[in-house]
Structure formats: structure tokens, C-alpha cells
Computed example of a mutant assay.
Amino acid sequence: MKQYFSNIRRHFSVYTYLEEFEEYCEIIESQFDNKIRKFKEMENKVPKEHLDAFWDFYVDEYHDIFVAFPNIHRSSLCISLHTFLEHQLDSISAELQRNYDLKISPEDLKDKGITRSKTYLKKVVGINFPDSAPHWNFITNCNLIRNQFAHNRGILDKSKDNKKIINAISQLGHSYIENDEFIRLEKEFCPKFIEEIKLFLDMLFDEIDIYIKENKSQENPAK
């Protein structure tokens, strides 16, 4: 007998995890803000004739506070968020396969990552997957950015995918390319990514709820 989800949102606990990501992001970014504020206060106290010596001494710390550490945090969180979403979609696909005794599994498909889950839920399960929503477009653009961080440290090379990445960055906002080479994420990027994942999953869960109700009614037609 098929075991249906009583509450798919609660079943996967996605919002709890996303709230944890959100809180973590706020804490880390606030620490960066505090360090930047203290650094600027220290700089403002230095007499103009001593500024060159100040910068000679603190140039490495400036780079860490303003560039290196924020970029490590934001790129790592971007990768983690994408991995989280990919895992959730894999889990949803596997759960629906088990619940509905589907012969084809997600692993049987040639696609990979979030694209495989989309294909499975849309074409195998038959869910009205919300891939035309702007939230999914945001996520797929983040996928390109995530891959570049994961495989090339966020550095653009002469790859044929560069045009796709540049176009993705122009659509995403809160991100830019520094010196025609380095992908940089601004403070607002990760909170925006978290919000887009929430909105997308809301739409997906709504469609799964509809699918479950329709299949229940087919199994129990009115007599």
C-alpha cells in the first residue's frame, strides 16, 4: 500500500534548514561589517602624512577583511545552498518513486544534479514542475556560478561557458566580475539565494500536493 505524505513541507524540514542558513549568513556578515567599521575608524584616526605608512602596514589585513574572507564565505555558502537544494530534490524524487512504485529511478536518467531531478519529477512522476518560474531561472543561473566556484575557484578562463556565466551574473544581480577574471558576490547575494530557494520550493510543494490529491482521487473514485 502506498504511503502518502501527510505534510510534505514538514516531512522534508526544508524551512528549518533554510532558516539556519539565513541565521548563519547574518551572523558572519555582521562580523565582517564590524571588522570593516573598526578598520575605517582606525584609518580615520591616522594623520594624512602617515597614511602611506598605515597602508603599507595594513594592506594585507585590508585585503582579507574587504575581499578574501567575504569571498570565501559567500562562495562557500553559495556552494552549500546549491548542494542543499540538490539533495532535497533528490530526496523528493526518491520518496515519490518509492511511494508510487515507479519502475524508473532518478539514477536511470542521463541528466545530473538539479536537472536530473527536474526531468524526473516532470517527465517520470508527472508533476507540473515550476521550471518556467523566475525562481527556477535564478537557481539555474546560480548553478553556473556554483560550478565555477567549485571547479575553478570562481576564476573565469577561456572556457566556452564563459558567455553563459557572464550572462548569468548579469541576470542574478548582487554579483560582478572583477578585472575580467574573478567572480565576486556581494553581501546581498546569499540571502537572495535563500529567498529564491524558499519561493521555488513553495511552488514545487504546491504542485506535489496537487499531484498527491489527484492520485488519491483516482485510486478512490466516487461510487
Results as ranks from 00 to 15, higher is better:
Ile194Gln: 02
Gln97Glu: 05
Phe189Lys: 03
Asn71Ala: 09
Val125Ser: 01
Ile114Gly: 08
Glu188Tyr: 10
Asp60Glu: 11
Leu204Gly: 03
Gly173Ala: 00
His87Gln: 15
Phe205Leu: 06
Phe69Met: 09
Val124Arg: 02
Pro191Met: 01
Tyr58Thr: 03
Lys38Val: 12
Asp157Glu: 15
Lys158Arg: 10
Thr83Arg: 09
Ile114Trp: 06
Phe54Gln: 00
Glu20Gln: 15
Phe57Ile: 06
Phe39Ser: 02
Asp56Ser: 12
Glu207Ala: 01
Arg184Asp: 13
Glu20Cys: 11
Cys25Asn: 15
Asn147Leu: 08
Met1Tyr: 12
Glu26Ala: 14
Cys78Asp: 08
Asp161Gly: 11
Ser175Gly: 04
Asp206His: 14
Glu49Val: 12
Asp90Gln: 14
His87Pro: 13
Glu181Trp: 07
Ser30Lys: 07
Lys48Arg: 14
Ser80Phe: 09
Glu196Arg: 03
Ile208Arg: 00
Arg98Asp: 12
Ala133His: 13
Gln171Val: 10
Ile139Val: 00
Ile212His: 04
Ile166Phe: 04
Glu196Lys: 05
Arg74Gly: 07
Ser76Leu: 01
Pro134Tyr: 07
Leu121Pro: 03
Ala133Pro: 00
Phe5Lys: 05
Asp161Val: 06
Glu188Trp: 00
Lys187Met: 01
Phe21Val: 00
Asn128Gly: 12
Lys40Arg: 11
Phe32Met: 11
Glu219Arg: 14
Gln3Ala: 10
Glu219Tyr: 10
Ser217Met: 15
Leu109Asn: 02
Asp101Cys: 11
Tyr100Trp: 06
Tyr100Glu: 03
Asp108Thr: 00
Arg184Tyr: 09
Leu121Ser: 03
Gln171Gly: 08
His135Pro: 08
Phe57Leu: 15
Ile79Lys: 01
Lys48Trp: 10
Met203Gly: 14
Glu19Trp: 09
Asn152Glu: 15
Pro191Ser: 00
Glu178Lys: 14
His63Tyr: 15
Leu204Cys: 02
Asp131Ala: 04
Asp101Tyr: 11
Asp111Ala: 09
Met42Asn: 15
Leu144Glu: 11
Phe138His: 00
Tyr100Met: 02
Ala168Ser: 07
Arg37Asn: 07
Phe66Met: 02
Lys103Phe: 05
Arg184Ala: 04
Asn71His: 13
Phe149Glu: 05
Leu18Val: 02
Lys192Trp: 10
Asp161Trp: 06
Glu23Gln: 15
Lys35His: 10
Val14Trp: 09
Asp131Trp: 01
Gly113Cys: 05
Ile165Leu: 07
Glu219Pro: 03
Lys122Met: 08
Ala68Arg: 07
Val67Arg: 11
